[in-house]
């Protein structure tokens, strides 16, 4: 029996879809069987982030309404043999699906998959309730900004109220240079305010923009964000991994620069 994870945030634009794509791909790299579900009905995005937009035949609403079987709607990612996507419907709205139907779908899928990952829409209305309906645990994504942290706090409260007690925090788009200057809250600050356990710190990395442009998740690659996402995956499967030293990039640069200077 697998596990259903919902990736949520409250506020839009903090990196839910990017996190879903990278964590899902990373778990597949760790040889787990993974299905990603885009629950943002009407605003489909996970497919383009994953680079699977040209392979959609059926979608989530088709499965719920019984127009096709689940396995006909699942898109198999050719790059990773264990990774599947259930895309969202673009021309429908959130009321096409109910939390009970989502719960049933999640239950069916976790019979077959190790991880069922729900990419939650922004907001706290029906789309959110659909996405969390069958969840065993949650990844709460936030950036170190007052608006995102405030919304994350609200989401954490709502998750608790809906009996999801296993929530972990992902602090996304952290800029170490600004944290050092005292102009950005650190991951420790955010963790202290929200009072849930941290599972990942992802630095602001321009490679994310590049990878999204290309439709190829960067998890596992040798950039800081790629390593940060892989560490999240390892922590999800239960490994203990120390948090990345986000100053490393600086250090490498200064090392190189130092060498040049010496020569």
């Amino acid at each position: 029996m697998g596990e259903v994870i919902v990736v949520t945030s409250g506020k839009g634009g903090v990196g839910k879809t990017t996190t879903t794509a990278n964590v899902g791909t990373g778990l597949a790299m760790l040889e787990k069987k993974v299905v990603l579900i885009d629950t943002d009905i009407g605003l489909r995005n996970l497919d383009v982030v994953l680079g699977l937009e040209n392979r959609i035949v059926y979608n989530l609403v088709d499965v719920i309404e019984g127009n096709c079987r689940i396995r006909n709607a699942l898109i198999k990612d050719k790059r990773f043999p264990n990774l599947y996507l259930l895309p969202s419907a673009q021309t429908r709205d959130k009321t096409s699906v109910t939390p009970e139907q989502m719960k049933k779908l999640a239950f069916e899928l976790k019979e077959e998959f190790d991880y069922v990952i729900m990419d939650c829409p922004a907001g706290i209305e029906q789309g959110f309730l659909n996405a969390i309906a069958g969840a065993d645990r949650a990844l709460v994504v936030t950036t170190p900004e007052v608006s995102a942290v405030r919304d994350a706090d609200r989401i954490i409260g709502l998750l608790e109220a809906n009996e999801i007690h296993n929530s972990h925090l992902v602090v996304n788009r952290l800029r170490m240079d600004m944290v050092k200057r005292g102009d950005m809250m650190s991951s420790e600050d955010v963790e202290e305010i929200l009072a849930i356990d941290l599972i990942g710190i992802v630095p602001d990395d321009e490679n994310i923009v590049i990878s999204t442009n290309q439709g190829e998740p960067l998890v596992g690659s040798d950039c800081l964000a790629g390593r940060a996402y892989m560490n999240i995956c390892k922590r999800i499967v239960g490994e203990e991994v120390p948090f990345l030293d986000l100053n490393e990039k600086d250090n490498l640069f200064t090392k190189l620069f130092g060498k040049l200077k010496k020569n």
Partner: peptide
């Protein structure tokens, strides 16, 4: 300088 905007953010939050 010491009191950067991050501590203001934290207090307000």
């Amino acid at each position: 300088k010491k009191k950067g905007s991050s501590s203001i953010a934290k207090d307000r939050l």
